[in-house]
């Protein structure tokens, strides 16, 4: 769980929530959100790329804008298993972790192109890109703990004593 590998989809700076999941799609049934993932960025060709690539690598301020949790849900449902960015907007970052979608802060967007292999160890911060190794800050223990439960709700159930500790 703490080590994630895959092929990358490269994005730029300031990818906002209207691009990730447009406002018109927010009331769509929850289980169909993946149909609208990145629908606000038609030039990206996301539907095609996600068939072979499942890690998004972006620049600054990924997920800026709305608090809509449908945005990370859409990406997760579409098959994205990790988002790496130089920086994340606060609410998007927390939403992703809360629904069990790992996000990792690392400045590697200039080192990759679509389809490149990347591997991230969330607990040590080690990132391997095209055979080259880089060190970044690992996820905090709180975040790792939330992810280990698969999100905030199972963690809260454990905290409240509804479920036994994992």
């Amino acid at each position: 769980m703490t080590k994630i590998s895959g092929k990358v989809i490269v994005l730029g700076d300031n990818v906002d929530t209207d691009q990730i999941l447009p406002g018109y799609a927010m009331a769509e049934p929850f289980e169909t959100l993946s149909n609208f993932a990145m629908a606000g960025a038609p030039g990206l060709d996301f539907k095609d790329k996600i068939k072979t690539c499942d890690i998004m690598v972006a620049g600054r301020n990924f997920g800026c804008g709305s608090s809509r949790e449908q945005a990370p849900h859409a990406l997760k449902q579409a098959g994205v298993k990790l988002i790496i960015a130089q920086g994340f907007a606060r609410i998007f970052r927390r939403n992703s972790i809360n629904i069990g979608l790992p996000v990792f802060v690392a400045d590697v967007v200039d080192k990759v192109k679509d389809g490149d292999e990347i591997s991230v160890d969330l607990s040590t911060g080690e990132v391997v890109v095209n055979g080259e190794t880089f060190e970044f800050a690992p996820l905090s223990e709180t975040v790792q703990r939330t992810l280990s439960y698969g999100g905030l709700i199972p963690r809260v159930r454990a905290d409240l004593g509804i479920d036994k500790e994992a």
Partner: peptide, 10 residues
Amino acid sequence: IGVGSTEQAA
């Protein structure tokens, strides 16, 4: 403090 749905539920 703005949050998403899951944090609001908690």
